[in-house]
């Protein structure tokens, strides 16, 4: 059985914030806390829209810097999840070169994308296909190959900004 993965196609993003609302609602059950979202969409310069969430890097900086082994990969979903070994040193939030792991001061915990344990709400509510949870990416005439989040070619290999 082939596994489902999260595919991002940033240029399809229209910055509608559906993903942010879905994410924060699923993780906090509070629709009034969009600040706690793990996925963010942006309107960049020249009106370019883009969406970003944890890339679940193969050799992840967050995992490398964690002193207690609190960031573990789920073999089922491929996601790196925070477990209860976290001692809140926040090293991961500073080390992640992509800014995808955060400290939530309200609930005093480290938060990151867990692909909703294999059923990501962001992809479910994305109206344009910028985020897709599927076994294969949607064929696209604009680019040869869609970016699979987990195996993004430059994850950990890209020179650090």
């Amino acid at each position: 059985m082939s596994r489902k993965r999260l595919f991002v196609t940033p240029y399809r993003c229209i910055d509608c914030k559906n993903c942010e609302v879905a994410c924060s609602f699923v993780h906090t059950r509070d629709p009034r806390k969009p600040s706690l979202t793990r996925v963010r969409s942006y309107t960049l310069r020249n009106d370019v829209k883009s969406v970003v969430l944890c890339l679940q890097c193969d050799d992840a900086a967050c995992q490398r810097v964690c002193p207690t082994g609190a960031l573990e990969r789920d073999p089922e979903t491929g996601a790196i999840n925070r477990n209860d070994k976290c001692i809140l040193c926040k090293a991961c939030t500073i080390a992640c070169p992509f800014g995808n792991i955060h400290f939530d001061p309200t609930n005093v915990e480290i938060v990151k994308c867990d692909v909703c344990e294999g059923d990501p709400a962001c992809a479910k509510y994305c109206p344009t296909g910028a985020l897709v949870w599927a076994e294969k990416p949607i064929p696209d005439e604009k680019v040869e190959e869609n970016v699979e989040v987990r195996t993004l070619p430059w994850a950990m290999t890209m020179p650090v900004r």
């Binding site: 196609t9 942006y42 090293a91 992509f98 800014g99």
Partner: peptide, 27 residues
Amino acid sequence: SGLPESYFTKSDRQRKKETAADLARVM
């Protein structure tokens, strides 16, 4: 961690925004 100190120079919020821009540029 053995990671260079250049990994520790920006806030997570800033990095996320820059990642979004990089993704858009790559695509």
